[in-house]
Design a protein around this nucleic acid. Sequence first.
RNA 1: GGGCCCAUAGCUCAGCCGGUAGAGCAGCGGCCUUUUAAGCCGUUGGUCGCGAGUUCGAAUCUCGCUGGGCUCACCA
Length: 522
Amino acid sequence: MDQLDFPPFSKRIPGMEGAENELVRQRRDKQASLEQLDGARYPNDFRMSCFVSDALAAGEGKDGTTLGAEAIEVAIAGRVIAVNGFGKASFIRVRDQSGTIQAYVKKDVVDEATFERLKLTDIGDIVGVRGTLFRTRTDELTIQAHEYRVLTKAQHPLPEKWHGLKDMEQRHRMRYVDLIVNEESRAVFRTRTRVIQYVRKFLDDRAYLEVETPMMHPILGGANARPFRTHHNALDMDLYLRIAPELYLKRLVVGGFDRVYEINRNFRNEGLSNRHNPEFTMIEFYQAYATYLDLMDLTEELMRGLAMDVRGKTTTEFRGHTIDFGPSFRRLSVCDGLKEYCGFEEADLHDVALAEVKVLAAGVSPAEVNHTLKNLADASSRDKALAIGMLAFELKVEPHLVQPTFVTDFPAVISPLSRRKDSDPTLVDRFEMYIACNEIANAFSELNDPQDQEQRFQAQMAAKAAGDAEAMEYDEDYVRALTFGLPPTAGEGIGIDRVVMLMTGCENIRDVILFPLLRPEG
RNA sequence: GGGCCCAUAGCUCAGCCGGUAGAGCAGCGGCCUUUUAAGCCGUUGGUCGCGAGUUCGAAUCUCGCUGGGCUCACCA
C-alpha cells in the first residue's frame, strides 16, 4: 500500500531536495564550523538577563551620553531577523517574544572567535547577545555586543524578508514559519489569547466558576450535529467526542454550582468552510435564577467591553462592514423577521400549507422543505410551519443581520433543551446573536421540567429514527438530574473562533486557529 | 459533492498566441567599522505540482490526478 510508505526524505528533513539542498548544506557547514569554534553543538549555557522589551525600557529616553556614562549591560536572546553586514562590523536585528532590538558587533570590540561567529550567522539563527546599550547615529537604541553566540543554527532558510510567507496552505501547515515571518499572524494569535483572557475575567468577576467536563461522551447531546466516534479499549466502549458540554454543565447547576462556565473545544463531524473547523472553541456559561433576557444584557456588555479591550474602540471592520458594539443591539423575533423580510403574514406562521407557499417563494428548494418535514412527521401544523419558516429565515433574513442582532423566540420544535414561552408554548425563550450575518452565540432559558424534557428527547429519537443524523440521543441520566431539581437557569454558548474573526477582521476561521485541520501533506 | 480559479528557484512573482526559463529577495565570492527594504561588482541555484496525450518540439495546448483558494450545497 502506498499509504504505508515513508514520506519522501524531504518531508522528514526539510530542505534536502533540489536547490534547497544547497542552501541547507551551506548552513550545515556553518553549523559545523561553529561547533568547532565553540566546542559545543546546540549549546544551552547562555543566560539571558532580561527580555528584549526590558532592554528597550532600560534605555528609553536616555541619550547617547547618558547611556555611555551608565554603561547598562544586558544579555538577550532571540531569533536573528535581519543582518546588515559590513566588512568589519554588522548590525543584527534580534527578536524575542517581547520585541525586537538591534545589536552591533564590531571587530575591534570583540575577540576573533566572536567575530567569526558573526560571519557564520544567517538570518533565522537563534543567538545570544551580551553587551551595553548605546545609541546609533540614527538614534536607535542598540546593544554594543561584547559577547555574541549562535545558540541554534537554523538549517532551513526563512521566507523572503518583506513579502513574508503568502501561500495560505503553507502558512497553515507550517504555522511556525508563518509566526516567524508574518507580524500580522502573531498579532492575530495574541488577540485570540486576549479575547479568551477577557472572557474568562469577565465571568470570573461575576462569580462564575470555571469547570472542566468530559470531552468523551457516551451519549450524544447538547446540540444538533454529527459526531466523531472513538472507542475505549479497556471498557470496550464506544464514545463520541463531544459536540457540546451543555448537559454536563447543567448537571453542575443541579449540583449547586449556580454559575459555571467552560472554555474548550467541541468537535463536529461536518463539512469544512471558512466558518467551520471540525474542532472549534466555544465558551458555554450557565447562570441560575436568570433568563435569556438577562443573558442578552450580559452579552451586550461582554461584547462591548471585549471590543474596547482588544481594539480600544467599540467598532471593528469585517467583510467591508463597520460593526459597532456601542449601541444597544437590535432584538428581532424569528416571526417578526419572517414578516419583515420574507412576506409572511401571521396566518402563514400557523399553517404548514400556507407557510410552504411563502418558503418556496423565498427561494428554498422543495427538497429542503421535504427533508425538514420528513423529520417532523408527528408534529403539529404550527410546528411544521415554524420549522420550514426557519429555512426561509436563513435565506432571506440572515443577510440583513449585519450589526449585532439578537434573534429571539425560536420554534420549540428545533429547540429540544429550551424552556417554552409562557405566552406561546410552540416557541421558546431563546436567542441567537448574529453579527455580520454570522451566528456568533446561542442562548436560552433552560428547560428544567423533566417531564417536558422526556418528551423532547422522545421527539429527537423519533427524528433520528426518521433519518435525522443530527438529532440528539435520549439522555436518561440528564433527565434524572432534572428530577433532582434544576433551578430556573439560563445558558449561553459563544463561538470563540468567530468572535476572534470579528475582532481581527480575519474572514477565514483557519486564520484564527493555530493548527487548523488539513489534509495530509501529499 | 457541483461551479470558477490557482500550482514556475528557499520566498514573492514574471514568462503562457508552442521553440527548451527570468527578476527581486535569500545564498555564495569580493569591497565597505553607525546600517535599518543599506549600497556597489560578480555569481550559484529549477523533474515549471504529478501522469498521460497532441506536436518535429510543451512551463505554455488537451485530458486525468493531487493539493489549495473562492463559491454553492451540506452545516450553527
